[in-house]
Amino acid sequence: MSAPEAPSVPTRRGFLGAGLRGALLFAAGAFTTLMGRHLRAERTVWQLDPYKCIACTNCATHCVLEQSAVKCVQFHPMCGYCKLCTGYFEPQPSGLNTGAENQVCPTGAIQRRALEDPYYEYRIDEPLCIGCGKCVVGCVLFGNGSFALQVRHDRCLNCNECAIAIVCPAQAFSRVPASQPYQLKTREHQA
């Protein structure tokens, strides 16, 4: 007849070892789950919400690119085609002409073209635009707000941590699905 086995005495070493094994198992499970989610998730890109943007000029100066990936875009369906466009002309211009001293844009990146009287079309010359948003302020403050800043994805490097998003005082930047990379303005939002 064999003697009954004595109950094992818990030791500190055994307890810590079991705890470590459990923690490793948990970490492996969490890693697998996160990887699965990451692989299933849609790719996202940076974009700024034009209704939150306050055109603070940080987009022009904080992008890691030499010339910012943020550019002004013109939402033509919202444009009033004004003769005196406050996004194009300085406040109190000396004349409603294309003289540099009359233009809001510091780089002359807005093109003005006469349509039928008294309407004018305004287009952004993107290579010249530095994304300062000066025209956006003029347009939003007085008019329909058809000028707005957007991250242009043909230029954006899609950094993991966007240098502009970090300093954006309006917290207008967010990750959006790559399938819908732009945030458009609509007339419905007006008035």
Binding site: C56, N58, P91, L141, V167
Partner: peptide, 21 residues
């Protein structure tokens, strides 16, 4: 400190200035 320090000053040449009105 990096996220919470908004930099709204901007270059004077890039600011739309209506102060005199």
């Amino acid at each position: 400190s990096r996220a919470g320090a908004p930099q709204t000053g901007g270059e004077p040449a890039l600011r739309y200035n209506l102060d005199r009105f």
